[in-house]
């Protein structure tokens, strides 16, 4: 029996040495990871579904930490995840009211040149602000379509149109559009301006028959003061708008539209 004491003692010494080596190695070879990202990841369900628009929960957590995206995009996580994330970040976050994207362009303008280059809005936009006569107009080559994870946006003629029922408000199209024509708005806001042109009335008129002239008739007519003209363009404040439709009646160009409410409330998430 005592012949075994020596090997075990040896084993203990080896174990101790190994323990030291491993501790040292752990220290030397440690990969520095951002602690915030790790903490945020714990708030997310870690199923990597892509609903937030990111390939995986880790990328979404990294984006939240980098403050490039809203913290309430996680659909499976829902309110619970949003609450936990806001706790980690120390900010107040409300669970998302459903949002949809909207493309602020009617696509009625003519082209200023024939474009035969790379099928990309960004590429076309590099040449004299795009192939449309209106320098703010939707190029219609589908950069937003390519990035949409849900197929909620498509090209109709020469402009992009969002299918509100499928939009999960991930915001990827907002970033993709070089003309910055897409915005995210609360899905209950059905009234929208179909133009993004900040040009003066004269220029806008020469470029597109449906462009907003900045005539201020809508601003005067709005009972809630939700419409304001900024830079020759009508802008609707979603918090104030009650979808009464008075601005649409008064607009001479008819570039303000009220969306069909049925499509606004249909959820794209059948999961």
């Amino acid at each position: 029996m005592f012949t075994y004491v020596l090997p075990v003692a040896f084993f203990i010494i080896i174990g101790f040495a190994v323990g030291i080596i491993l501790t040292a190695a752990n220290h030397v070879f440690e990969v520095k990871t951002d602690n915030t990202v790790k903490k945020l990841m714990e708030c997310l369900p870690e199923i990597n579904c892509g609903a937030c628009g990111f390939p995986g929960c880790e990328q979404y957590a990294a984006a939240i930490a980098a403050e490039t995206v809203a913290p309430n995009h996680c659909k499976p996580g829902g309110e619970k995840a949003a609450a936990q994330i806001s706790e980690v970040l120390g900010i107040a976050v409300s669970a998302s009211e459903p949002e949809v994207a909207f493309v602020h362009c009617s696509g009625s303008g003519a082209e200023k040149y024939i474009y035969a280059g790379t099928e990309s809005c960004v590429a076309s936009e590099m040449y004299y602000n795009g192939k449309e006569l209106c320098r703010f107009g939707c190029v219609g080559l589908g950069d937003c379509v390519k990035v949409c994870p849900n197929g909620a946006i498509h090209i109709e003629g020469t402009r992009a149109v969002v299918t509100p029922g499928k939009c999960i408000a991930c915001g990827l199209c907002v970033k993709a559009c070089p003309q910055k024509l897409i915005t995210l708005q609360k899905s209950r806001q059905l009234t929208n301006v179909l133009c993004g042109s900040k040009d003066t009335a004269k220029i806008t008129k020469s470029a597109c028959k449906s462009g907003c002239l900045g005539c201020k008739l809508c601003e005067k007519k709005c009972p809630k003061g939700a419409v304001t003209i900024k830079d020759n363009l009508a802008v609707i404040n979603g918090d104030l708008c009650s979808n009464c439709g008075k601005c649409t009646e008064v607009c001479p160009i008819k570039c303000i539209v009220v969306r069909d409410c049925k499509s606004a409330t249909k959820s794209s998430w059948l999961l």
Binding site: M1, Y4, V5, V8, F11, I12, I13, G15, F16, A17, V18, G19, I20, L22, T23
Partner: peptide
């Protein structure tokens, strides 16, 4: 810093002790 090494050594000692008793 020494805790991992110590814990490992203690576990080895315990297991070794139990085995020595068994062999006996």
């Amino acid at each position: 810093q020494f805790k991992p090494a110590i814990v490992l050594s203690v576990i080895i000692a315990l297991v070794g002790f139990v085995l020595i008793v068994c062999v006996g």
